[in-house]
């Protein structure tokens, strides 16, 4: 840029008539010139104040995804517990409402054990979170869970 053009642009800058693109160009020109000492320091200061950490967006996005995954896991757990409770309630209600005069056969000890085992495994299965395609449970205990997707 010629010296006169640069001076014209500075005049516009001090009249607040420049757009952001022109101001960017002005800063670039000043960096390459020895003539504008005050502006050079002013622009360097503005640049320093406008500093933004390099990985800001990635850090923030990573946190957003992590929180979203956590919420999803908690939501899924509530749904499964509610489903398990509903199954137990249905079976319990069916047992209570069973007609008294219905003829039933006494179960042998082995049959009773098999029925009990099947019922427990069904409840256990419904409480156990299913494998999710986009979730990998790395560690889990009563209070803490680490998941990856």
């Amino acid at each position: 840029m010629r010296r006169e053009q640069l001076h014209d642009l500075f005049e516009k800058y001090y009249n607040a008539e420049t757009d952001l693109q022109q101001e960017k160009l002005l800063r670039k020109e000043v960096r390459q010139s020895d003539e504008f000492a005050e502006e050079s320091d002013l622009f360097a200061y503005f640049g320093q104040e406008a500093f933004v950490p390099e990985n800001l967006e990635n850090d923030i996005f990573g946190q957003l995804i992590k929180k979203e995954t956590r919420r999803k896991t908690i939501r899924m757990r509530y749904i499964r517990i509610a489903a398990a409770a509903a199954v137990v309630l249905v079976f319990f209600s069916a047992y209570l409402l069973k007609p008294k005069n219905l003829s039933t056969r006494e179960l042998t000890a082995d049959e009773q054990f098999a029925v009990l085992e099947q019922a427990l495994s069904q409840v256990s299965y419904s409480l156990q979170p299913e494998e999710d395609d986009d979730l990998l449970v790395v560690f889990q205990d009563e209070n803490f869970e680490i998941v990856m997707n």
């Binding site: 950490p53 800001l56 967006e57 923030i60």
Partner: peptide, 25 residues
């Protein structure tokens, strides 16, 4: 997400601390 970068200096100026700025954003 690009707004995070655009808003960073302004919020940094208010809070005067990088960690708090990042939390706020």
């Amino acid at each position: 997400l690009p707004w995070a970068r655009r808003l960073y200096p302004m919020i940094r100026r208010l809070l005067k601390n990088d960690a708090e700025t990042q939390d706020a954003i």
